[in-house]
C-alpha cells in the first residue's frame, strides 16, 4: 500500500487546479491501493476543506500565522513536516502555480525523494511511477521513470479531471515549529486584471510581435476581447518588448492554457508558444504569413493584416450580439 499526498495552498481555495490535482491524486491512489491525503498550507476556506474532504482519506490544514501569506521557507518546512507525518507516501502532487513550482524540488530533496515539473500524465503501475511531459520546447514528448520515493511532482492540474466524491475522510488542523526564515517576501503587487485569469478563461485573444507595439493590444485587441468575452494573452516576443505585462505570456515559460477557443493574432506559433496553448479545444489565427506554423494547429484562420481584420470583426461580433 502506498499513499498519495496532494499539497495545496489554502489561499487558493478549491479552484480548478486543486480539483485537477486532487483528481489525479485520487486516481493514482486507486491504482496503488493507497490513500489520498490532502495538505493545505495555510488556512483553507470551508469550500476548500469540504472539497478536499469529499475525496481524500485525510485532510490536514496547517494553519498558523507564518503561513497566512506564502513565504518560501515556512511553506517548505511546513510541507516537509506535514508530509513526513504521513507514512508510506509514494507520490506528492502539486498544482501548477508559482509557489508549487518553487517548492517541488526542494521538498523532494528534503523527503529523500525525486521530483519533476510540468507533468501532463502520471501513472503508478506496480510501484513504478511514470510521468509524461513535453520536452524540447514542445517538439517532443518524454516519459520519465522516477527513481526515488516519494515522487514529488507538479502537474498541469487544470487540464486534469477532477476527483469523484468518495466516502469522505478525516480533517485535522495542525501547526508546526518553524525556523526563522532568512528570506522574506515583503510586498506583493497584484496586476489588475478584470474577469477570470488566463488559465480560467474559456476564450483567449492573444497577440504577438506582428502587432508592432503596445497600442494594438490596448485598442484593437482589447475591443475584440471584450466583444468575445475573452481574456487577453500574448507571446513572449510581445511581453519581452514590454508591450504587455509578463504575466500575459502564454507558452512554455508562461501560462499553460486550454480554453475553448484560442485566437492568435500576429503570432507565428513557435513551438514554445504552442506548448502553452496547444491543448486548446479550438485554435484560430490571424496572420499575414500563410506559412506561419500556427496555421498547422488551427481549425480555421485568415491570412490578412490584423489591421484590416480586428476592428471590422469586433463590429460584426458586436452586431451579432
Amino acid at each position: 500500500m502506498s499513499n498519495v499526498i496532494v499539497v495545496l495552498f489554502g489561499n487558493n481555495g478549491w479552484d480548478r487546479s486543486a480539483e485537477g490535482a486532487a483528481g489525479t491524486g485520487q486516481r493514482l491512489a486507486q491504482s496503488t491501493g493507497g490513500n489520498l491525503n490532502v495538505v493545505f498550507l495555510g488556512d483553507a476556506s470551508k469550500e476548500a476543506r469540504d472539497g478536499a474532504a469529499a475525496c481524500a482519506a485525510s485532510v490536514v490544514v496547517v494553519n498558523q500565522p507564518e503561513l497566512a501569506e506564502y513565504q518560501p521557507e515556512a511553506a517548505l518546512e511546513a510541507a516537509q513536516k506535514a508530509c513526513a507525518e504521513i507514512s508510506d507516501t509514494s507520490v506528492v502532487l502539486f498544482g501548477n502555480d508559482t509557489y508549487s513550482q518553487e517548492l517541488v524540488p526542494r521538498l523532494a530533496h528534503r523527503l529523500g525523494g525525486c521530483s519533476l515539473a510540468d507533468v501532463q500524465g502520471v501513472t503508478a503501475d506496480g510501484g513504478q511511477v511514470l510521468a509524461t511531459r513535453s520536452a524540447y520546447g514542445g517538439k517532443a514528448m518524454s516519459t520519465y521513470s522516477m527513481k526515488k520515493t516519494p515522487v514529488v511532482l507538479w502537474v498541469r492540474a487544470r487540464a486534469m479531471d477532477p476527483a469523484t466524491p468518495g466516502a469522505g475522510g478525516s480533517l485535522e488542523e495542525k501547526a508546526y515549529e518553524l525556523a526563522t526564515p532568512r528570506l522574506t517576501i515583503t510586498s506583493r503587487d497584484v496586476l489588475e486584471s478584470e474577469g477570470p485569469s488566463l488559465e480560467d478563461a474559456s476564450i483567449i485573444v492573444s497577440g504577438g510581435r506582428g502587432l508592432g507595439g503596445p497600442e494594438a493590444f490596448e485598442n484593437e485587441l482589447k475591443g475584440l476581447a471584450t466583444a468575445m468575452h475573452a481574456v487577453q494573452g500574448a507571446s513572449r516576443a510581445a511581453c519581452d518588448a514590454g508591450w504587455v505585462p509578463p504575466n500575459w505570456q502564454v507558452g512554455q515559460t508562461g501560462k499553460k492554457v486550454a480554453p475553448e477557443l484560442y485566437l492568435a493574432i500576429a503570432i507565428s506559433g513557435a513551438s514554445q508558444h504552442l506548448l502553452g496553448m496547444g491543448d486548446s479545444k479550438m485554435i484560430a489565427a490571424i496572420n499575414t504569413d500563410p506559412d506561419a506554423p500556427i496555421f498547422k494547429h488551427c481549425s480555421f484562420g485568415i491570412v490578412e493584416d490584423y489591421k484590416n481584420v480586428v476592428a471590422p470583426l469586433t463590429e460584426k461580433l458586436n452586431s451579432m450580439g
Partner: peptide, 22 residues
Amino acid sequence: GSSFYEVTDLSIPTKDVQCEFV
C-alpha cells in the same frame, strides 16, 4: 545521472489538424 529519474521514452508527437482558411 539516473538515480533520480530516467528518461524511458522520447518521441515526436504527431498532430494532424487541417486549417480551414477563410
